[in-house]
C-alpha cells in the first residue's frame, strides 16, 4: 500500500465522517439512533472522531421495546455516561398500557407498535429533522439501493420511487418543515468491516456478542435465550445451558443465538470467515415473505 493512500477502513471512516459533519452543518436538530449493537458502537466512534476534540453535538435516541436484553441496557447507560453524551430513551407508553409483547401479539404487530411507531413518536415529539442510523447496505437486498441520505415525508414514510439521486459526496439535505431524513453513515461498510474496525479501534461491545454459557431453548431450529420470566416456556420445556453468542442484538425473544466459542473480537472474525451464513439469519423478523424489510421500511422502520 502506498504511503499516500488510505486503507479501505480508513477510506470508509473518512466517508462516514464527511457524512456526519455534513448533517451537523446543514440540519437544525439531528439525533443518532442508538441501538447499542456493534454497528451503533462503530457509528458512535466515528462521531467522536468527526467532532474531536469537541463532544458529539447531538443526542442519542434509544427506542426501548421493553424486551431488550438487560445487558444491553446496562451497557448503554455506562457508555453514555463514559463519553458524556445525552441519551434519550423512548418507550411507546400506549404499547406498554396495551401490554404489547411478541408472544401474544405476534412478531409483526409487536415490532410495529414497539419499534416502528415508537420511533415515529420519538422523532415527532422531539422535532428531530435528521436521524443517523447504523444500517448497512450489505445487510439485506432492499437496503442495497438505500441512499445515504434517505428522505422521509411528514409521516416518516419512505417512498422508493421518490428518492433523490446521490452523486459524488454532494448530499442534498434540504427538507421542508416536518420532513426529515434518515442518514446512514455506514452504508458502504460490511459486517466484516465493522468487526475489523471494532478490532482496530478497540471499541467496547456488549458482552452478548461473545460466547458464554447462557440459558437457551430451541424454537423452530433457532436458539432463543430465556432472559427473564416473561418468556413463556412450553410445558415440560427447560432452558438448557449452552455456550452461545449473538451475531446481532435486538429484542431477546426475536434474536437467535449461535453456538460458539468465540470470546474475543479476533475469535469472532475468525468464526465469521469460516462460517457460511449471514448475520440476519439470527433475526427472527426477517423470516416473513420476500420483501418484508421493504414493507417495513415504507412504514417508517429502518
Amino acid at each position: 500500500m502506498n504511503a499516500s493512500s488510505l486503507s479501505h477502513l480508513e477510506a470508509l471512516e473518512a466517508e462516514s465522517i464527511h457524512v456526519m459533519r455534513e448533517v451537523v452543518a446543514e440540519f437544525e436538530k439531528p439525533v443518532m439512533l442508538f441501538s447499542i449493537g456493534k454497528d451503533s458502537m462503530a457509528m458512535l466512534r466515528v462521531a467522536q472522531k468527526a467532532f474531536a476534540p469537541g463532544k458529539i453535538p447531538f443526542p442519542l435516541l434509544h427506542v426501548n421495546t421493553t424486551f431488550k436484553f438487560k445487558e444491553m441496557i446496562s451497557f448503554r447507560d455506562a457508555i453514555a455516561r463514559e463519553i458524556g453524551v445525552e441519551l434519550i430513551e423512548w418507550i411507546n407508553q400506549d404499547g406498554v398500557k396495551a401490554g404489547m409483547n411478541p408472544f401474544q401479539h405476534g412478531t409483526q404487530r409487536y415490532t410495529h407498535v414497539m419499534k416502528t411507531e415508537a420511533l415515529k413518536q420519538a422523532l415527532t415529539a422531539h422535532g428531530f429533522d435528521a436521524a443517523f442510523g447504523g444500517a448497512r447496505r450489505d445487510e439485506e437486498k432492499s437496503r442495497a439501493k438505500e441512499r445515504v441520505f434517505s428522505f422521509r415525508d411528514r409521516f416518516h414514510q419512505w417512498d422508493p420511487k421518490n428518492q433523490r439521486p446521490e452523486l459524488w459526496n454532494l448530499y442534498n439535505g434540504r427538507v421542508h418543515k416536518g420532513e426529515s431524513i434518515r442518514v446512514f453513515p455506514l452504508s458502504n461498510w460490511t459486517e466484516l468491516d465493522v468487526w475489523l474496525y471494532a478490532h482496530a479501534e478497540k471499541i467496547p461491545l456488549v458482552p452478548l456478542y461473545f460466547a458464554a454459557e447462557r440459558p437457551v431453548v430451541s424454537r423452530n431450529g433457532t436458539l432463543i435465550m430465556v432472559e427473564d420470566e416473561r418468556f413463556p416456556l412450553e410445558t415440560g420445556e427447560r432452558p438448557e445451558l449452552k455456550r452461545v453468542r449473538f451475531r446481532t442484538l435486538g429484542c431477546y425473544p426475536l434474536t437467535g443465538a449461535v453456538e460458539s466459542s468465540a470470546t474475543s473480537v479476533p475469535d469472532v472474525i475468525e468464526e465469521m470467515l469460516r462460517s457460511r451464513s449471514s448475520e440476519r439469519q439470527g433475526r427472527v423478523i426477517d423470516y416473513d415473505e420476500a420483501g418484508s424489510m421493504e414493507d417495513k421500511k415504507r412504514e417508517g422502520y429502518f
Binding site: M1, S5, L6, S7, H8, L9, A11, L12, D138, T190, E191, L192, L196, H199, A200, P266, D267, I269, E270, M272, L273, R274, R276, S278
Partner: peptide
C-alpha cells in the same frame, strides 16, 4: 460477508487470525 477468493479461510488456517488481521485488515478500496 466472506472475504476472499480461493479461501481466506484456508489462508487463515495457515497463518492464524492475528497475522491474518495484520495482513488483510488493510486492503485497498476499489
Amino acid at each position: 460477508m466472506r472475504a476472499a477468493v480461493g479461501g481466506d479461510a484456508d489462508d487463515l488456517s495457515a497463518i492464524g487470525i492475528e497475522s491474518w488481521l495484520e495482513r488483510y485488515g488493510r486492503k485497498e478500496l476499489l
